[in-house]
């Protein structure tokens, strides 16, 4: 059995934006993080609802990686609270994060080239039978996960990862992350090294993760990709969350302005829904 959930009804794009009415899967409130004298994050708030893709944007040094690592358990925030499924949690290690169902796919993917797809997907969590590796069961489960995600273009799941294309490697890394009962997947620059066709397939894969009801956060420089898949957009500027809301509130121009100046048209971000309510 794969742990990927069936697609919940009505979890379509741009639907119930900002998780209004429902508690977001992951909630960050007032996250501060500094390294020595350098303050990396200032009171960051962020909601990551289930069944939605959140695009995290920001210039180099804006704090995207630090924020990601705080969620993934690689860093601990100095102040602030992380709520997971409504409950306050402490994510002290990547192991803690995995136990909650938070998996991270870093840009370097961390795949062993000499191992095959199945071996990579089960690395560190091998199944044993009579003390020996149970290759057949692992192969069946890996194949099932890959077919659920419709990663069907690999010739054999027993081929070494070295023989895969960049897009296929990304797909394997994502499949590895979602196989373990994951609820939230953080993707760091998933399309950075890919060509047009492979980018397309990775974006399709991200859409399928959303359709399976997972919360997804995509960290990307590429605004085309962000607008392509994101239901929500969050922009970091010099360690502060300057804008966070439904993707419909943004266009390319405004995101670039938030990324480079922290404001758009000289005004701080205000969600369209709130603005309408006022008007």
């Amino acid at each position: 059995m794969t742990e990927v959930n069936e697609a919940p009804e009505g979890a379509s794009r741009g639907g119930d934006v900002a998780g209004a009415g429902a508690e977001p899967l992951l909630k960050l409130r007032g996250i501060d993080k500094h390294f020595g004298p350098v303050q990396a994050l200032y009171g960051v708030n962020l909601d990551l609802p289930a069944g939605q893709v959140t695009g995290l944007c920001g210039d180099n040094g804006a704090g995207k990686s630090v924020l990601t690592r705080c969620i993934a358990g690689a860093h601990q925030p100095d102040h602030g609270q992380i709520y997971f499924e409504g409950k306050p949690v402490h994510v002290r290690s990547t192991r803690d994060a995995s136990a909650l169902g938070i998996e991270t796919v870093y840009q370097d993917l961390a795949l062993a080239d000499n191992l095959d797809i199945v071996q990579n997907m089960f690395l560190g969590r091998e199944q044993l039978r009579y003390g020996l590796l149970d290759e057949d069961s692992m192969e069946l489960k890996a194949a099932e996960t890959l077919s659920t995600l419709r990663v069907t273009t690999v010739r054999s799941i027993r081929q070494p990862v070295a023989s895969l294309s960049g897009g296929q490697r990304q797909s394997v890394a994502v499949a590895k992350a979602v196989m373990w009962n994951s609820k939230l997947v953080l993707l760091d620059e998933p399309t950075a090294a890919l060509g047009v066709v492979q980018t397309r397939s990775v974006l399709d894969l991200i859409n399928r993760l959303r359709d399976h009801g997972l919360a997804v956060m995509v960290i990307s420089h590429n605004l085309n990709d962000v607008f392509e898949v994101a239901d929500r957009i969050a922009v970091l500027y010099l360690g502060r969350m300057v804008a966070e809301g439904p993707a419909a509130d943004f266009d390319r121009q405004s995101v670039v302005e938030y990324m480079t100046t922290g404001t758009a048209n000289g005004r701080p971000y205000e969600s369209a829904a709130a603005a309408n309510g006022k008007g």
Binding site: R95, D113, N114, L123
Partner: peptide, 15 residues
């Protein structure tokens, strides 16, 4: 084999 192929991948896998 995993360490020989990619030590960082092995380390992140908890090895």
């Amino acid at each position: 084999y995993a360490i020989g192929g990619n030590p960082e991948a092995a380390r992140r896998a908890g090895v």
